[in-house]
């Protein structure tokens, strides 16, 4: 009997998710033993045409990480969807848009201009920009098109499961593999992580008083954080209460507040709106001036509350951006 086929693919991502797969360490061998990896660009050499040649649904599961920003990523997402029984959005970018989705605050043209013309570290005197296709000595190479909008995987194709995190933890990855290989699968659409917020597993939980009333907000670089006290009790924005657990409270254990990479619980439609609601309601001031003074400590609410989730948020993208490369 042939081993089940598994594919890994990366789209708009940093490669951190791939590291997690590698971080399975000894366990990776167990996985490799049980499955047949048919695509893994970061580690192994396969060609798209090999995949295209495969029968539909012949891959048991594809773990796809990264947001979808280019036409090539879309194309591969569609292809892998067709070839896989289970398509799994692996990591915050595929699930929620991740850091790349913060680009949804800016017009495409601004991004291209900065990256190919204005960036101080750039050496591109001809201000050459990537073209979708060109003629070069009789060859006709194609480059993927850079889209206007950063998308989550499920905004492009149907997704079966989500493994959250930036990056996902080895433990959750292992759990997902175990579930897949054993056939003991949760309902379609599930996020493979506890549906309880992070505080549940945070060591600092007990140190949070029941009478927090914010008089100021500080950012991690502005204050040396107490290594044991709840960050919110220190006036530091911590996304923990609005973020799924399952990471083992890795950041808060490392004396950094949670930034929300595991996304919201299943009961929440917009993670940023919810943490905003909670933090603001607990501000001490009652008058507009006092409230705004306290809120000066959150200079960039979008970047703070939607660090990983902008593409999946209710608004998805800065609404006054158009689709012709220009912008506001």
């Amino acid at each position: 009997m042939s081993k089940p086929k598994v594919a890994f693919y990366w789209c708009a991502s940093c490669g951190g998710c791939e590291e997690t797969v590698v971080d399975l360490a000894e366990d990776i061998l167990g996985v490799v033993e049980k499955v047949d990896i048919c695509l893994w660009p970061v580690a192994m050499d396969f060609k798209y045409k090999d995949i295209e040649a495969m029968a539909d649904k012949s891959i048991v599961a594809t773990l796809l990480n990264g947001a979808i920003r280019t036409s090539e990523q879309e194309e591969l997402a569609v292809l892998l969807r067709r070839k896989s029984q289970y398509l799994i959005a692996y990591g915050a970018c595929a699930q929620l848009g991740g850091i790349p989705a913060l680009a949804n605050q800016f017009p495409r043209e601004q991004i291209l201009r900065f990256n190919y013309e204005e960036c101080p570290a750039l050496d591109n005197p001809g201000k050459v920009r990537p073209q979708v296709s060109l003629q070069d000595n009789g060859r006709n190479p194609h480059l993927p098109e850079f889209r206007n909008v950063v998308r989550t995987l499920d905004q492009v194709v149907d997704v079966d499961y989500y493994i959250p995190g930036c990056p996902p933890t080895p433990a959750l990855t292992r759990a997902a593999f175990d579930a897949l290989l054993s056939g003991n699968l949760p309902p379609k659409g599930s996020v493979i992580a506890p549906d309880v917020a992070l505080c549940d597993e945070c060591d600092r939980k007990a140190t949070k008083p029941t009478n927090v009333a914010f008089t100021e907000f500080v950012r991690p670089h502005q204050k040396l954080a107490d290594p044991e006290l709840c960050f919110l009790a220190q006036g530091m924005v911590c996304m923990g209460p609005a973020t799924r657990s399952g990471c083992g409270a890795a950041c808060t254990s490392g004396n950094m507040p949670c930034t929300g990479c595991f996304g919201p619980t299943s009961r929440v439609r917009d993670q940023g709106a919810k943490i905003l609601s909670s933090l603001c309601a607990n501000i001490e001031a009652k008058d507009e001036a006092g409230i705004n003074e306290t809120l000066r400590g959150i200079p960039d609410p979008v970047g703070t509350f939607y660090r990983y989730g902008l593409a999946k948020s209710l608004l998805r993208r800065r609404v006054d951006l158009n689709m012709t490369g220009g912008g506001h």
């Binding site: 939980k205 949070k208 029941t210 909670s278 607990n282």
Partner: peptide, 15 residues
């Protein structure tokens, strides 16, 4: 409060 779902963040208590 949904007992199994509450994380115990205590944000609601002072409200």
């Amino acid at each position: 409060i949904l007992e199994d779902e509450c994380s115990g963040c205590k944000s609601c208590i002072p409200l």
